[in-house]
């Protein structure tokens, strides 16, 4: 029924091939060189991957559509650098599948948000933004603090991330749910494993203020606190001298 048993006549095929040709060449010529960009991009040997908790937080950020109002891309413009911090480098989002650069700033840029505010501030802000910023138009996300974080499938998340190129180790994948728990419960035995696998600089805290239960609020705040802090590359003077437009 959907069979294609009609004689394909030359004009139609010509048109189809013409459109495909003209339309695809532009994209290929422009995009293909970008896949060799790692050859020119700044190196960042100190770059670490997201912990399972941060990744889960990132997924909440995506799920709630935060990217529709917040960018994570500081442009190479003086006022942006002074308002938000050093401009974003390509290397900083090299593990971001997908990137969350955004295209609209209904709220401020978040690329350098990490450690700018306390955990308490974030929790209060998410529960009701107008409690801390009276003029804010951001929606309230109180339900995050009530919702338990799903961790059983985090191993699969890390595995899929590895499949698209993020260097997660087997140990990281195997311990993903425990690491998520440990990162938000500093006194639990699981906390040590997180530092061991993701580095000493990893923040291990009860992000939502409640060490015993792991909520979506924990994950989101953990993610917000790591924004711009996976590597120090952008803070190094060389980097900024190189890329001034």
């Amino acid at each position: 029924m959907f069979g294609f048993h009609y004689r394909l006549e030359r004009k139609t095929i010509g048109m189809v091939l013409g459109i495909i040709g003209v339309a695809s060449i532009g994209g290929i010529v422009e995009i293909a060189p970008l896949f060799t960009i790692h050859q020119t991009v700044e190196a960042a040997p100190d770059m670490r991957v997201y912990t399972p908790l941060e990744l889960a937080g990132r997924n909440i950020y995506i799920r709630e559509g935060c990217y529709a109002c917040h960018s994570q891309m500081i442009r190479t413009l003086r006022d942006e650098v002074e308002r938000y911090g050093p401009y974003s480098l390509a290397v900083e989002s090299k593990y971001d599948h997908p990137m969350l650069w955004g295209s609209k700033r209904t709220g401020p840029d978040l690329a350098r948000l990490g450690e700018k505010y306390s955990d308490d501030w974030h929790v209060a802000h998410m529960i009701n933004p107008r409690d801390v910023v009276p003029e804010s138009v951001m929606p309230a996300y109180a339900f995050l603090a009530r919702t338990e974080l799903r961790t059983d499938d985090l191993g699969k998340h890390l595995k899929a991330q590895r499949a698209v190129g993020v260097p997660y180790t087997d140990a990281m994948i195997a311990n993903a749910p425990a690491d998520a728990y440990g990162q938000a419960s500093p006194d639990s035995p699981a906390a040590e494993g997180v530092v061991e696998r993701y580095g000493k600089a990893t923040m291990v805290r009860a992000f939502d203020g409640k060490p015993n239960d792991l909520t979506e609020m924990d994950a989101l705040v953990a993610y917000l606190q790591i924004l711009g802090r996976l590597t120090d590359a952008a803070h190094k003077p060389v980097a900024s001298a190189e890329k001034q437009p």
């Binding site: 532009g26 010529v29 422009e30 293909a32 060189p33 060799t36 960009i37 050859q39 020119t40």
Partner: peptide, 17 residues
């Protein structure tokens, strides 16, 4: 290895024209 990247960019620019 920057050669291949530069080469590709050069090709893109000139070929495009």
């Amino acid at each position: 290895m920057t050669i291949t990247h530069d080469l590709l960019v050069w090709f893109s620019k000139s070929f495009g024209l």
